[in-house]
Simulated scan of single mutants.
Amino acid sequence: MLFAHDTECSLIAAAALVNTDGTDGEGLPDVAALDAFFVAHSYSGRHEHTEAELESVRELRPRLRRIWHADTDEIVRIVNGLLREHNALPQLITHDDEPYHIHAVPRDAPLATRMAVEAAMAIADLVRSGELSRLRTCERPGCDDVLVDLSKNRSRRFCDASCGNRAAVSAYRARKAAAAQR
């Protein structure tokens, strides 16, 4: 583990949230999809299951996406803005048999607020440790999804296995075509 467990979970969830607004269409088309996202990324606390909550989560995505394409100073402005806007006050807490970790807004804060602050706190850890290079975009041509490279050797290149497989197949076909032309 490179970072604290809650930091890694928040980074992964932030990237996944950004990727729900991708070239493949709307990844959060309805409240049921948000419910599934909530469970998949182990969010706790308040969850209203409403269209208004869904819309507020969707509105967060462009701000988070900018983090993957910004320089350090702009990332710091985004992170500080999110923390200030949501009145973040970091505190150590434990719940649901989890060890102590940091929450910076109450568990009854709106879901989009908790998502924003958790992402901001995790990105702040990357900034503090000089690890912003772990925020990347998928290297497969045509894919604009983002990823967090948490590998020890910083070798992750694709957002998921399917993009890695597609890139491998494309490279294989290119090699075969080049060999056939010789």
Rank of each mutant, 00 (worst) to 15 (best):
H41C: 06
R166D: 07
P141K: 00
G142P: 13
G81V: 02
T72G: 07
Y172D: 02
A171I: 06
L64V: 12
F37P: 02
M1T: 10
I67C: 08
G130T: 06
L89D: 11
I12W: 03
E26F: 07
R134H: 03
S44G: 11
H41S: 09
L150F: 00
A167G: 10
I67M: 14
H86M: 01
A112T: 10
T72Q: 15
C138Q: 01
M121E: 11
P99C: 12
A174K: 09
R136M: 06
R154M: 13
E26A: 10
R107Y: 13
C159W: 01
G45L: 15
V117Y: 06
G81M: 00
R65I: 09
L64G: 07
C159A: 05
R128Q: 15
Y100P: 03
S162M: 10
E53L: 01
H103P: 00
A112P: 08
D30N: 11
E98L: 15
C159H: 06
V148H: 03
S10R: 12
V117M: 12
D160C: 13
D125K: 05
H86Q: 10
D6M: 04
R128D: 15
S42C: 08
H5V: 14
I123W: 06
A14C: 10
D35V: 14
C143E: 02
A33R: 02
D96T: 07
A174G: 07
L150C: 05
G81W: 00
G22R: 08
F158G: 00
I102H: 13
R182S: 14
Y100N: 12
A161E: 12
V105A: 01
A32C: 04
E26G: 00
A178H: 03
G25V: 04
D97N: 13
R157C: 03
